[in-house]
Amino acid sequence: MRLFRDAGHLFRLAGLFAFGTLFILTIRSFLVPRTFGEYGHYRGAAIAEVAAHPARFAGHQTCETCHTDVAQTKAAGKHAQVNCEACHGPQAKHADDPSSVDPGKPDTAVLCVRCHEASAARPKDFPQVNAGDHSGGVPCQTCHQPHSPAIGSASAPASAAGGTK
């Protein structure tokens, strides 16, 4: 009994610790997000939040549902594997509201050389030219139809400039 009396302050300290631990555990039950641990050690709801990000690129399947004519031209030519938005940029807004959002036309002077300007660093079998020597400043689309670039291919360059409008 004397031990209990003389160690009384230690029991008070232990009580304080027990109270603190209980307090933290109580808080914890309120502060841990509800979906935490749903799939693993993380907030399950975070997956849906990431998935909710809006898409900016519509995807070529979406483009092709309307632009069937271009899709056909392209499929027959050298650019068959190049998706629409690789050159035209992200067009989800246009796909969502085709009449009011005008995608505009890319500038071939900038666009074509990004891939085709000759560089020792590019794969040897990839078609590339020294643009200055090759055309002497004449715009690329004068001779090449971007959707089917080989000269003498299905579509004439003139219609290429007009696109599908």
């Binding site: 004397r2 031990l3 003389d6 160690a7 009384g8 302050h9 230690l10 008070r12 300290l13």
Partner: peptide, 19 residues
């Protein structure tokens, strides 16, 4: 800071020393 315990008897301090 005393946690309401003023017990500083010799025995209490001896316990403190051991702990």
């Amino acid at each position: 800071m005393t946690l309401g315990s003023a017990n500083v008897s010799e025995r209490a301090l001896a316990i403190d020393e051991r702990v």
